[in-house]
């Protein structure tokens, strides 16, 4: 039987026209971010005469591309109401996997494949913990964060792996063309794909629906657990890929590689306007936030501010961008109330 919706409409007489004219609300957060990015850019070029140099700008991109590559699937994961705190641990383990593959004398393709594969496996384990064993994601990945980095330490101890073939350096140090790094091109391509998937496809809509109301999504025929599992796996894979880039850029593997990066990655995601409560977020926002983080930390670097002090800025940024709008809203409401 085929139900004719048109006939139904005629059958039950409508007494009211429903319009679909209203457009999506103006994406205020993204515009605000863009303004801050431009302001920071201006501030940087004013503070340092070397900033506007093409080589400096090219260098700048290395400051955020690796983290941003992980922030993309992280955004999808957080939109789906999950989170992965173990990404930096995954990067360490993936780096160790690559180092050992290189030490065993395998060639470039095997090394890169090993890094990504290790990431995918770690991500799949996270996904299995959350979907099969029903462990809350935050707890599960706090556990595996120690597990993955712990394994890296256990395997490597205080040793360093650096038997990488010379052409391995391309991923983290090479240029796709002119002064545009391979990393940047890869990031932009991945961002484009993520954005299209999230905002224009069935898969993206389902991710948003899962994050907005998992039960209603399940009842609507969406395979919620399957989506969750693959999102964790994807995030792990992205962490593996980022590990390829970072290891290639550094030229060596230490177990302490990428320590604390989970904070930066999650900060980029939240700063980009992704709601920690799920169901909301845009890839444009995440890309802008990554750029902003890169600009801020790079600018501070130009001013010879040590790395650890930058963490104050990063942490302050994370709290500030969320707290200030709420604060303004409350103040406005209070003023209107009196």
């Amino acid at each position: 039987m085929s139900l004719s919706i048109e006939q139904l409409a005629a059958d039950v007489r409508a007494d009211r026209e429903v319009h679909s004219a209203r457009k999506r609300p103006f994406m205020r957060w993204e515009w605000l971010l863009l303004l801050v990015v431009l302001a920071t850019f201006g501030l940087n070029s004013w503070a340092s005469p070397y900033f506007l140099d093409p080589y400096t700008l090219s260098d700048l991109t290395y400051n955020f591309t690796e983290k941003a590559i992980v922030a993309l699937p992280m955004a999808l994961l957080i939109i789906a109401r999950e989170i992965d705190i173990s990404v930096a641990g995954i990067m360490a383990l993936a780096s160790v996997a690559m180092g050992m593959t290189a030490a065993a004398g395998y060639g470039l393709p095997a090394i890169v494949a090993m890094g990504v594969l290790a990431g995918l496996l770690c991500g799949a384990l996270n996904g299995a913990l959350v979907t099969l064993f029903k462990v809350p994601a935050i707890v599960a990945t706090i556990g595996t964060m120690s597990l993955y980095r712990g394994i890296a330490y256990a395997v490597l101890g205080d040793k360093v792996l650096k038997a990488y073939p010379p052409d391995f350096a391309y991923f983290g140090q090479g240029y796709a063309f002119s002064l545009v790094s391979f990393e940047l091109v890869l990031f932009l391509a991945l961002a484009l794909v993520s954005g299209i998937v999230l905002h224009f496809t069935v898969v993206g809509r389902r991710i948003v629906a899962i994050g907005s109301n998992p039960t209603a999504a399940l009842f609507s025929g969406i395979r919620v657990e399957r989506y969750r599992f693959w999102l964790f796996t994807l995030t792990g894979g992205a962490a593996g890929l980022a590990s390829v880039l970072l290891t290639s850029r550094l030229g060596s593997t230490r177990p302490s590689i990428a320590v604390g990066w989970e904070l930066d990655i999650i900060t980029i995601t939240i700063l980009g306007g992704v709601s920690i409560l799920g169901g909301k977020g845009s890839i444009v926002g995440v890309v802008l936030a990554a750029l902003l983080m890169g600009l801020v930390t790079f600018g501070l670097g130009l001013l010879n501010v040590p790395g650890i002090v930058m963490s104050i800025v990063v942490g302050g940024l994370l709290i500030g961008v969320i707290a200030l709008p709420i604060l303004f809203r409350q103040m406005r409401a209070a003023r209107r109330g009196t």
Binding site: L8, A9, A14, R16, V18, H19, A21, K23
Partner: peptide, 12 residues
């Protein structure tokens, strides 16, 4: 929405 006599300002 018309068939169900949905009362809403817009479908968005």
């Amino acid at each position: 929405a018309q068939a169900m006599q949905l009362k809403a300002a817009s479908l968005d």
